[in-house]
Design a protein around this nucleic acid. Sequence first.
DNA 1: TTTCGTGCAAACCATTTGCAGCAGC
DNA 2: GCTGCTGCAAATGGTTTGCACGAAA
Lengths: 146, 146
Amino acid sequence: MQDSKDQNKAVDNLRKRGHRITSQRQTILEIFAELPHGEHLSAEELHEKLSEREAAVSLATTYRTLKLLSSLGALRELDFAEGHKHYELKQDDLPHQHIICTGCNQTTEFEDHFLEQAGQKIGARYNFEVVDAQFKIFGLCPKCQK
Amino acid sequence: MQDSKDQNKAVDNLRKRGHRITSQRQTILEIFAELPHGEHLSAEELHEKLSEREAAVSLATTYRTLKLLSSLGALRELDFAEGHKHYELKQDDLPHQHIICTGCNQTTEFEDHFLEQAGQKIGARYNFEVVDAQFKIFGLCPKCQK
DNA sequence: TTTCGTGCAAACCATTTGCAGCAGC
DNA sequence: GCTGCTGCAAATGGTTTGCACGAAA
């Protein structure tokens, strides 16, 4: 399956950089791998999901792991201007741009071939080594326009 | 001058929606109008600039004003994933996309005609009333690649 | 066995809020 | 004069950290 491939890649990345493969890290990656594409979790939400399992993970470790995995490029850190960050598995071959309703905070994922390339192209213009590019559209969804 | 135009537009917006034109709000708009294009301020930085003037503004009011002006569309709220937000005057006719170095946190502004349109186009696809579109590129600048 | 990672609780820091006094309109 | 705005200080909420113990390698 698609997502467990990225999960394994993340584990390899941990190992490669000398980090240990702990049960907590595995469980967290597992949860992200099982998450339907397009969904993302805040640290708090992830911690909640972890608590539902037998193998609970402390909030501190949850935060530490999210930060570590993001720095390794296994997770993508998303900021929707609502006070806390969200995270999702980084899958380069899938769309990950967002359109956010400032009324109800609902986010929808979309893809746009042009945008996928734009990041690399513009980065090159500035001699940047591009790690990630995010396009966010803020506005009101049909429901919230009334 | 370019920026004072946007400043006045913001004042009109305040008035139109029944908000009062206080000296604090005017001073804050003034500071943003005087800011070189491409620069942006955090609440803390703005508060510092305010303290340098005779007419100081409390931190609480600084935050309240930033929030109000953003909700009116006079300011743009920027999030560079470094723990606090930044704000800049919203000038629709100028570029406002950012490329951010995750090494030294330096941000560079750039424009791209395609991107400016892409937000509107994609928003329309989802029947969104687009308020703002932000494209962010994360990566390492030439200096930080070593 | 040697580090590194974890859990806990306390600490931090950006932002928000209750309330009394003050200032736009 | 009415009501919204401000300043102050205290509260909040997400995130980080110091430390002692437990677990990968």
